[in-house]
């Protein structure tokens, strides 16, 4: 039962990643692309968590936490750059 749910989950999150990539390529504005990158990071965290369940190891959690943190910092840095033209003033 869990194997079927994991397969559906991998497929759904994979399609979500593809949608984010399409928005990243289309995105009419730079803010759209920053938002697509942020959602891409969230999808990556979900994929890593699904991989952790599929392999039944707890070794991937640090990677997921690191990717979530770097995604947040990257998005905020992008927004600061778009707002002020500089990341650290």
């Amino acid at each position: 039962m869990i194997a079927i749910a994991l397969g559906i989950g991998f497929a759904a999150v994979g399609f979500g990643t593809v949608f984010c990539l399409i928005r990243l390529a289309l995105g009419p504005d730079a803010v759209d692309r920053a938002l697509a990158l942020d959602t891409l990071v969230v999808n990556a965290v979900a994929l890593i968590m699904l991989l952790g369940i599929a392999q039944a190891t707890a070794i991937h959690f640090e990677a997921a936490l690191l990717i979530a943190m770097l995604g947040f910092v990257g998005t905020v840095a992008f927004c600061k750059f778009m707002l002020r033209g500089d990341v650290i003033e």
């Binding site: 039962m1 869990i2 079927i4 749910a5 994991l6 559906i8 989950g9 497929a11 759904a12 999150v13 399609f15 979500g16 990643t17 949608f19 984010c20 399409i22 928005r23 938002l35 697509a36 959602t39 969230v42 999808n43 979900a46 699904l50 369940i53």
Partner: peptide, 20 residues
């Protein structure tokens, strides 16, 4: 666990589809 996985996957694909 399977139900929670399905619900989470559903919301993941809904969020990304809305973004698109």
């Amino acid at each position: 666990v399977a139900l929670l996985l399905l619900a989470g996957s559903f919301f993941m694909i809904v969020g990304s589809f809305g973004l698109l």
